[in-house]
Amino acid sequence: MNAPGAALLEVDGLNVGFKTSDGLVRAVTDVSFRIDPGEVLAVVGESGSGKSVTALALMKLHPRSAVISGTAMFDGVDLLALGDADMRAVRGNSIAMVFQDPMTALNPVFTVGFQISEAVLAHNDVTKKAAWARTVELLDLVGVPEPRQRASQYPHEFSGGMRQRAMIAMAISNDPKLLIADEPTTALDVTVQAQVMEVLREVRKETGAAMMLITHDLGLVAGAADRVQVMYASRLFEAGAIDDIFYDSRNPYTRALLGSIPQVDSERTERLLAIPGNPPSLLNPSPGCPFMPRCSERVERCTEELPTLLEIRGREHRSRCHLAQELAPISEVLP
């Protein structure tokens, strides 16, 4: 139904707030972005930056106390305007999600196979037997050895990496058009992380799904994403093609994040460039730039005026910084 070249997902002016006893906490503020069919968009930021809340809001899996505005056109319909029943038909079907912690994301009292076949049965009019066969096929696809036997085991009999594979199998069970992976490797060992990323790449190749990869780890993004957007204190801070972000970032916050990636060739003793300070409170945002107190480039203007998300030199590269155009080339600031 969408015209060639049209976006798969187009989010416009998304706001998510939470009512608390101390006032409204703005977890996502005026976020707009798009994902094209088949591409990988990485959403990067520290914890609390609003990246996970964005994803949960798209799936309408947010807590009940959330207040949401904006639109999210997916395949011609506004997800945020969908009723419960229509949203259920989307979840796990055309949009599927992989969560952070595979240790807690599977129900401990049901077998892994049961939980995957449930996803198949929820969206397809097939017999339980057929769903089970599909489950075994899916487990095989994500590289779970002896899928037939493993399907009837419980989650606690799976290792962390194997559970995440099972979660991925569950997510792709209905050939989704969009896969949302929320920190899919954060809870895993480093060696297992690479394997899981590889599985994600494989299944995307198989299904042609687009992916929204949420992570705090820019290192993970480098080999996996087509485009990157960086979030800070509930707002988009920079967005662009992967090369624009990595080699020509126009934002001090992104640069600080890039500086904190451990380099493979650097000496172990070399101190990581951690970003000093903490993210600001989301309760009563100050009028200026939220990154100002931690920013190495700050000028007077930053305390009074929130920078707008500016298009850089006509490309699809946007940055929220008063100095976006003036910053020195990235090669001069980072080793």
């Binding site: 939470f18 009512k19 608390t20 006893s21 101390d22 906490v25 977890a27 914890s47 609390g48 809340v53 807590p63 009940r64 106390s65 903490n278 993210p279 600001p280 409170s281 989301l282 309760l283």
Partner: peptide, 21 residues
């Protein structure tokens, strides 16, 4: 308690409290 906070919001509050209190 009288507030209607959820786990996520508590996390947010904890994450942000360090600066303010």
């Amino acid at each position: 308690t009288d507030s209607s906070t959820t786990k996520l919001e508590v996390d947010i509050a904890i994450a942000t409290e360090g600066l303010t209190a």
